[in-house]
Design a protein around this nucleic acid. Structure first.
Length: 481
RNA sequence: GGUCCCAUCGUCUAGUGGCCUAGGACGCUGGCCUCUCACGCCGGAAACACGGGUUCGAACCCCGUUGGGACCA
C-alpha cells in the first residue's frame, strides 16, 4: 500500500480525442473525479492526441462539452501530448544513454515477415531483440526500443483486483520513439504520469495488459509507481464492449434525448460501484461515499431501462423552476403560442402537472405543447373512440354549463361536472374523457380540472366548441350516407 | 493463437465463513388508489455456472472445468 497522504492524491482522466465522450469514458472520468473530490486531491485532464491519424479538434471539443454537461470538473489541464513531444524525446534519449533503450532499424516489412514466420511455428509474434547489441548509427532511419528486463516477474497490486502478475517473457522490447520522432502510447503515458505526479491511475481494464509494459519504464526512470485501479468494462446487451452498434453511446446523445445529467451520472456511478442498497445519490453523497473499495471487478451490461427510470425519478423530483428552462429549450419552435405561454407561472404549474408523467424532457415537451400552442392536433384514434355522437350531449351540456360559470376555480368546475353528471346519469369518467380529447387532443393528460385550469376559460370553451362542431359534422356526413 | 481479466435473479447489485429458507433496484407481473395516463402504495415470479476440496459450517477460501470478455497481434 502506498503511504501517500490524502492531500497529495492526484489522478487523471486521459481520453484520446478520436470521437465523442462515450459512456465508458464518462464513467472513468466520473470515478476519477469522485475519487479526487472524496480525498481532497486533484484531477488532471490530459488529452492523448499522439495518434495524428485519428485525433481531431472536434473530438476534443466534444469531450470537453460532455464533461461539462455532466458537471465533471478538473483541476489542471487540459494538457496535450502533442505539445510535449520534445519532452518525450528528451526522456527517450536519456533512456538511450543510460542503456535502457537502443536503436533499431528493422523495417516494418522485415518485422511483418518475422512475425508471420513465428506465428507459423506456433511462437508468440514478438520482436526478437536482434538490434539489442548492434550499434546502429544515428543517421540511419531507426526507432528507439525499450530494453525490457528479462526474467523479471512483473507483479503489481491493483486496488480493485488485488495482486496481478505477468511473466516478463511475454513482453518484447517495445518501441518508445518512432522514426518520425513521435512517442508510442505506453511510453508517453508513463512520462506524463511521472511528470504530472499522478498517484493513482484509475482507468478501464482494457489497459490492464498495458500495465506490465509500463511498469519497467517507471523502474528504468527510477520513479515511484502510481497505484493502479482497473475498472471493469461496460458491455452492451450482447456482452461485448459497448460500441456504436449498441445504439446511443455518446454522452451528448442522452442530452438530446431529454436526459438529465444527474440521472446519467447516477446511473453510471452504480455500474460497478455500490453503497449498500442505495440507488439514488446526490452529488454530495457521491463525494462523501465514493471510494475504490466498493468498486466491483466484474463487467456490467448497460441497461437503458434503468437509466430511463432514474431520469423519470429526477424529472419528477426536480422543482418546477429548475425544469422550466429545460422545457423552454425543448419547445423553442413554439408556433402561435397561447397567451398564457408568456407567463412564467403558467410554465411552472404546467411543469408541475406533467413532470410525474414524463420520463424524459422530450416527453415533457410533447405533453406540454397542447398547453402552449394554439394549434391543437387531435389524435385520430382518440377521436374515433371518444369524440362520438353518443358523447355529443355530454359535450354540449358541459359547454353550456361551463359558459355560464362566473368563476373558473377547481371547486366550481367540479360542481359543474357533478351537476351535469347527475342530469345525464353519467359518472365523472364518462364526462372527463370526451372533454379531455377535445381539450388536449389525446386520451392522456393531467386531471381534467387541472387541464381546464391550465387552459383557462377562453381556450377551454373554444376547444370544446370546436370539438362539438367536429362531432356534429361527422355525424351529418354519416347521415347522408 | 498467446497473455490477462471476469462469473449472485433477464439486468445493475448487497453479501468479505455462521445474521442467507440469499437482501435492494430496474424490468416483468397481480392488486390498491383513480376522471384517463402516470405517480404513489401493497404483493408475486425470478439468481449463488459446474465439479472437487478446506472447514463443525461456504454464495463467500483454494483447485479444476465450463462459459464470457479484453488486450496483443
Amino acid at each position: 500500500m502506498s503511504s501517500t497522504t490524502n492531500s497529495s492524491i492526484r489522478v487523471r482522466f486521459a481520453p484520446s480525442p478520436t470521437g465523442h465522450l462515450h459512456l465508458g469514458g464518462a464513467r472513468t472520468a466520473l470515478f476519477n473525479a469522485l475519487f479526487a473530490r472524496h480525498h481532497g486531491g486533484k484531477l488532471v485532464l490530459r488529452i492523448e492526441d499522439t495518434d495524428r491519424e485519428r485525433s481531431t479538434e472536434s473530438s476534443i471539443t466534444a469531450i470537453l462539452d460532455g464533461l461539462s454537461w455532466l458537471d465533471l470538473s478538473w483541476d489542471e489541464g487540459p494538457f496535450y501530448q502533442t505539445r510535449r513531444l520534445d519532452r518525450y524525446r528528451d526522456i527517450a534519449f536519456s533512456l538511450l544513454s543510460s542503456g535502457h533503450a537502443y536503436r533499431c532499424d528493422c523495417s516494418p516489412e522485415e518485422l511483418d515477415e518475422r512475425r508471420s514466420a513465428a506465428m507459423k511455428m506456433g511462437l508468440p509474434p514478438r520482436y526478437d531483440g536482434r538490434c539489442r547489441d548492434r550499434s546502429i548509427p544515428p543517421d540511419r532511419p531507426h526507432v528507439l526500443r525499450f530494453r525490457t528486463p528479462e526474467n523479471e516477474p512483473i507483479v503489481f497490486h491493483d486496488l480493485i483486483r488485488g495482486e496481478l502478475s505477468f511473466d516478463s517473457a511475454v513482453l518484447d522490447d517495445l518501441i518508445i520513439l518512432r522514426s518520425d520522432g513521435f512517442p508510442t502510447y505506453n511510453f508517453a503515458v508513463v512520462v506524463d504520469d511521472v511528470d504530472m505526479n499522478i498517484t493513482h491511475v484509475i482507468r478501464g481494464d482494457d489497459h490492464i495488459n498495458n500495465t506490465p509494459r509500463q511498469i519497467p519504464i517507471f523502474r528504468a526512470l527510477s520513479q515511484k509507481m502510481p497505484a493502479f485501479a482497473h475498472l471493469p468494462m461496460i458491455y452492451g446487451p450482447d456482452r461485448t464492449r459497448l460500441s456504436k452498434r449498441h445504439g446511443a453511446t455518446s454522452v451528448m446523445s442522452y442530452k438530446e434525448m431529454g436526459y438529465l445529467p444527474q440521472a446519467l451520472v447516477n446511473y453510471l456511478v452504480r455500474l460497478g460501484w455500490s453503497h449498500k442498497d442505495q440507488e439514488i445519490f446526490s452529488r454530495d453523497e457521491l463525494v462523501r461515499y465514493f471510494d475504490l473499495d466498493h468498486v466491483g471487478s466484474s463487467p456490467s451490461v448497460f441497461n437503458p431501462e434503468k437509466l430511463l427510470w432514474l431520469n423519470a425519478h429526477y424529472i419528477k423530483n426536480s422543482p418546477a423552476p429548475d425544469l422550466v428552462p429545460l422545457l423552454r429549450e425543448q419547445v423553442r419552435d413554439l408556433r402561435d403560442p397561447l397567451p398564457q405561454a408568456a407567463d412564467t407561472a403558467h410554465w411552472e404549474s404546467l411543469t408541475n402537472s406533467l413532470k410525474a408523467r414524463s420520463r424524459t424532457l422530450v416527453e415533457l415537451a410533447d405533453s406540454a405543447r397542447p398547453f402552449l400552442e394554439s394549434r391543437l392536433v387531435i389524435d385520430p384514434e382518440a377521436k374515433i373512440k371518444v369524440l362520438t355522437f353518443e358523447n355529443l350531449p355530454v359535450l354540449e351540456h358541459l359547454a353550456l354549463a361551463l359558459r355560464s360559470l362566473s368563476d373558473w376555480t377547481p371547486e366550481s368546475l367540479r360542481n359543474v361536472f357533478t351537476q351535469v353528471g347527475e342530469a345525464l346519469h353519467k359518472k365523472l369518467g364518462d364526462l372527463a374523457q370526451p372533454v379531455r380529447v377535445a381539450l388536449t387532443g389525446g386520451t392522456v393528460s393531467p386531471g381534467i380540472f387541472e387541464v381546464l385550469l391550465l387552459l383557462g376559460r377562453t381556450v377551454s370553451l373554444s376547444r370544446l366548441d370546436h370539438g362539438i362542431k367536429m362531432v356534429q359534422e361527422d355525424s351529418d356526413q354519416g347521415a347522408t350516407h
